[in-house]
Design a protein around this nucleic acid. Structure first.
Ligand SMILES: [Mn+2]
Ligand SMILES: [Mn+2]
Ligand SMILES: [Zn+2]
Ligand SMILES: [Zn+2]
Lengths: 130, 130
DNA sequence: GCATTGATTTAGACTGAGTCTAAAACTGGA
DNA sequence: TCCAGTTTTAGACTCAGTCTAAATCAATGC
């Protein structure tokens, strides 16, 4: 349960409309990595009249404010991730489910030897959840 | 230059039609990571009548036969990668350009300690080409 | 309370990547 | 050459995501 979604939105200068609060309650507190349509499905249970455009507007607004990140790992559509600290991802090939892998669980060495300015990186793993 | 695209296709039991050979000549031998539309653009120079459907059919056929892999790294569309051995990828945030990073250039440790059956993995890096 | 005004939401039109379909063109073998 | 199977093609279609313009809402000032 997210401590106080209304305050979280206010802290980022976002008007806490009823629709935005319901999106925040779900998407900022989930361990899933939901697509926009999954967010719509869940939020409609409490806000049955919310439109698809508002779902997209709100998710994009949250991304602009750094409350969410987008992930594009496979299977062709964007998913949203409320965990904005660094971590890796495991993708279950059977179901498409995305599971977080803590940053400390892996060691990645020699990034600094690459001839690039690396701003960010992650390990993307695929396989079977066992 | 790909040694013999016709023979490469035959080796995989693929009829080397004129269209498929021209797709193969470009996409199996490039260092770019082209989208389907980029492939169409290039192949049309030699096969001006080739259709978009044939581009997609051919690319998907090559993927089924393991001649290509698809990558979904960012910016929302699939690109194709003829390098089917393991390697990592760097994505230039300014241009979207994808650059190969040799497998041996990085060390990833403690994969075997994860509670998953990891079939495959790669490091995805983002930043500026410097 | 009421009016004004800007912010937010909404339905539905629109876009673009990718798939599907059914007809036309091509191919290799009899 | 004929035939049957394969491949190509144009265009219809789908689906995620964006855009638009009208309707609704919410804060402020009177
Ligand atoms: Mn995550
Ligand atoms: Mn590559
Ligand atoms: Zn913010
Ligand atoms: Zn093959």
């Amino acid at each position: 349960m997210l401590a106080d979604p209304i305050q979280t939105l206010r802290d980022h200068g976002i008007q806490p409309s009823a629709q935005r609060v319901e999106v925040a309650r779900y998407v900022l507190d989930t361990d899933e990595h939901p697509s926009a349509d999954r967010v719509w499905e869940v939020v409609r249970e409490r806000q049955p009249t919310i439109s698809r455009a508002t779902i997209y507007n709100t998710l994009n607004l949250f991304v602009e404010h750094g409350l969410l990140r987008t992930l594009l790992l496979s299977e062709g559509h964007v998913v949203f991730d409320p965990k904005t600290n660094r971590h890796h991802h495991f993708v279950d090939e059977a179901t498409g489910r995305i599971v977080d892998v803590p940053w400390d669980a892996l060691d990645v060495g020699r990034i600094d030897e690459l001839p690039f300015e690396v701003a960010d990186y992650q390990v993307v793993l695929r396989g079977r959840l066992s």
